[in-house]
């Protein structure tokens, strides 16, 4: 009678199920289960997060306008097309790391890792949910900017991949940041410093040509200008051309974020 634990009242044999579950169908099952699990945890916060994100995006868009003595059509266009980028960055670089830090502190993180699902499925479900959650805020911020500055936008099909890539990029990089750095306090400091740098020193609401040469070069490597560029390419005609390189930069950052996260996730404690 091996495998029967009668004292605990269990009639089921304790030995593993006859077949080891693996392969793509199992991965898909894991992914579906993790989506349900993560959604169940996030559901109560979703409304608040969308509101905060919209307020931050829209608030920053209005705020940048106040800094100029006069808003020329060019400035208005730059600020309005920067709005979705401004809404995406706080979500990826602040809310995602904060969420991961909370999970780490509460132990949820270890619990999720102990589940018999693929860790890549766990990671991807987080990415998917946060990316989906990023979209309403970005759209709303754009609408508010559009209403405030009355600019004429011409949407192009490039907008869809642009928004998706930007959202995925900021979520993966934020996630990797939170995973790769052990100490939550350090993550907090980095995140806050990043936001400050991004909001002031990144050419999101003003043309990159206004930057001094060395800062311009730095922004060719950092993802923020590329985000703004691909967004502008999707929202206007003629303002941003030759965005292939920007897409490449964003893709590279997404891959780097995924790789860093995968490396941490794949490691054992």
């Amino acid at each position: 009678m091996t495998g029967l634990v009668t004292s605990a009242g269990l009639a089921e044999p304790l030995c593993p199920r006859d077949d080891l579950r693996s392969g793509f169908p199992y991965w898909l099952d894991s992914f579906r289960a993790m989506l349900r699990y993560d959604w169940g945890r996030l559901r109560q916060w979703v409304g608040m997060m969308v509101v905060i994100q919209t307020l931050m995006g829209a608030g920053m868009v209005l705020m940048y306008g106040f800094f100029y003595p006069s808003i020329t059509p060019e400035r208005a266009l730059y600020i309005a097309t920067g709005a979705p980028t401004l809404a995406l960055i706080p979500l990826g670089l602040v809310m995602v790391p904060n969420g991961v830090m909370q999970d780490k502190l509460q132990g949820t993180f270890d619990y999720v890792w102990s589940l018999p699902t693929r860790r890549s499925a766990q990671m991807l479900s987080t990415f998917t949910l946060y990316t989906l959650m990023a979209l309403p805020g970005a759209v709303l911020a754009l609408l508010i900017a559009f209403w405030r500055y009355g600019v004429h936008l011409s949407l192009s099909p490039i907008l869809l991949p642009a928004v998706l890539l930007c959202a995925v990029m900021s979520v993966t990089v934020g996630y990797a940041l939170a995973l790769a750095i052990r100490n939550p306090l350090v993550t907090n400091v980095i995140v806050n410093a990043l936001i400050f740098v991004v909001l002031l020193f990144s050419p999101i609401v003003y043309p990159a040509s206004q930057l001094p040469g060395w800062l311009f070069d730095v922004h060719r490597v950092l993802p923020f200008e590329s985000m703004a560029q691909v967004m502008r390419a999707g929202l206007t005609t003629g303002l941003a051309t030759d965005v292939g390189l920007s897409f490449l930069v964003l893709g590279a950052w997404t891959l780097a974020g995924c790789a860093a996260a995968a490396w941490v996730v794949g490691r054992r404690h």
């Binding site: 100029y68 400050f196 740098v197 002031l200 206004q210």
Partner: peptide, 21 residues
């Protein structure tokens, strides 16, 4: 740092920052 950041960063918003700004 944030004070200095603001003082320096604001000039990036303009092509030539007016003295009043």
């Amino acid at each position: 740092l944030s004070g200095v950041g603001f003082v320096l960063g604001i000039s990036l918003f303009f092509r030539h920052i007016p003295t009043s700004a």
